[in-house]
């Protein structure tokens, strides 16, 4: 009786159930692959609308002149620093220039789509910098496109320091062009106008990349003093970014991209 009922049910709903399972499995595997197929297609379609190569050339030229001027100074400084401390100073990797081809596909998350991928030597975790300073990290890569999670995203955590006073804290995005810093000290030495850069404690970002300026300071906020930062890079108007390869300092397992709270807390103890 039961078998008959089952067979009847299957005869009636078998195809529908099968289609439903196939649809859900397809959607699930798309989600697990971080939408790679789609971004491949997207990068192919948007190729004709890319900002012309000449822009890339002039950016590279400017970058080269800037670098060669800096290089000599850095060499001298390096030699002196090596004498002072045991650790060799870290350098930011060689840049790959990439056009921005898309924006966040979902407005609660702040990300960018750039038109370069694995084929151009970009890997997950690479640091993304724009004229002005740090903007984020590569969160997923396909062959010719990759997605960048911005520092202004709510799930981003960056270890930062105030350049003037070396006060250290954690910066997190609040889903706009603003970010907030929570300092570890009760009364950090910080005031509006101070410049903020990535910290030496930072595991996921090279030290000393400029990020933004302090716009307001609220020392009475609880549980930690709250400091608002305006990002240097005009993220809404950018057309090209440079991607720098970066290998994380192998300290301990990393639970989440961009999240540095644990490491900084350990350093602070």
């Amino acid at each position: 009786m039961f078998v008959y009922a089952m067979r009847q049910w299957w005869g009636r709903y078998g195809v529908t159930t099968g289609i439903s399972i196939v649809v859900l499995l397809g959607a699930w595997s798309f989600r697990q692959s971080n939408g790679r197929i789609l971004y491949e297609l997207y990068s192919q379609i948007s190729r004709p609308f890319e900002v012309p190569e000449a822009r890339e050339k002039s950016l590279i030229d400017a970058r080269t002149r800037e670098l060669s001027a800096k290089l000599e100074e850095q060499r001298q400084e390096n030699a002196r620093l090596r004498q002072l401390i045991d650790e060799a100073p870290k350098n930011i990797g060689e840049p790959t220039f990439a056009p921005i081809i898309g924006r966040s596909a979902n407005h609660w998350w702040q990300d960018l789509v750039i038109g370069r991928g694995k084929a151009d030597g970009i890997n997950r975790g690479d640091v993304v910098v724009a004229p002005g300073g740090l903007i984020g990290r590569v969160s997923s890569v396909s062959a010719h496109a990759s997605r960048v999670l911005l520092v202004s995203d709510a799930s981003s955590r960056v270890g930062v320091t105030v350049t003037r006073s070396r006060a250290a804290g954690v910066m997190r995005g609040v889903s706009s062009t603003l970010a907030v810093i929570e300092f570890f000290e009760k009364l950090p030495d910080v005031k509006p106008g101070d410049a903020i850069t990535t910290s030496h404690f930072s595991q996921r970002f090279p030290a000393g990349i400029p990020i933004g300026t302090v716009t307001s300071v609220d020392l009475s906020a609880s549980p930690a003093p709250l400091v608002k930062v305006e990002l240097f890079a005009p993220i809404a108007n950018l057309e090209w970014v440079s991607v720098h390869s970066h290998v994380d300092k192998p300290l301990n397992p990393q639970p989440k991209l961009n999240s540095e709270v644990e490491i900084l807390l350990e350093e602070d103890e």
Binding site: A27, G35, N106, S139
Partner: peptide
């Protein structure tokens, strides 16, 4: 479709 949207974003 929700799963698809997760795939193209965080």
């Amino acid at each position: 479709v929700g799963l698809l949207q997760d795939g193209i974003s965080e």
